[in-house]
Amino acid sequence: MIYYDKVSKVYPDKTVALDDVSFGIEPKEFVTIVGHSGAGKTTLMKMLIAEEWPTDGAVFFESTNIHKLSKKEMSKLRRRIGMVFQDYRLIPTKTVYENIAFAMEAIGRNDAEVASDVPHVLELVDLGHKIWNFPRELSGGERQRVAIARAIVTQPDIIIADEPTGNLDPVNTYEIIRILQKINELGRTVLLTTHNKGVVDTIGGRVITMERGKIVKDDRSGRYIL
């Protein structure tokens, strides 16, 4: 489904973010990418949505080179990828409903679908009672659940969660991981980055360990070796 082919990323200041990284992800997999800060996890994620461009190598989504897509094709690809960020990236001037509805409207869903699916997905993340609140009125855990709701409402093929628990307490962390697992059980591919050993132990499954831009371990037994 996704394949990183000898991907390297060197920033203009010579910082090496990724160094000859190659690996593939199959449909319906739950892949956790672990590593210390600066290991290259986020850069790896950003490559998949063309927020970053490789200096060498290529990233393929269903055998399409992502970085050779036109802007229009890129917009369409992004609609198949749900993104969850550590800092939530909710739009502060929109209510919870509008933040999620926007993602549906952006891909051309009609008003009836928006009106039925948004409350439904909010119930899934247990936020049905906060539908008309603004992000500033929510806790960190609630904001992250809204971000997950926004990522899954369009029923994307893959969910990318970049340090989604980085700003959360243990209770909310567990809650978010539980939701991501549930999404995976429903048949979606999930790509998660974290440096939280507890999270990795909870999830199990495939764990890719990164260090200084390189993959040092690709373990399918759910072990965090650093």
Partner: peptide, 16 residues
Amino acid sequence: KDEIAVMKLVGASNIY
């Protein structure tokens, strides 16, 4: 600009 970036990342077209 952050809102614009988020909108783009969820797949919104430029006109949107």
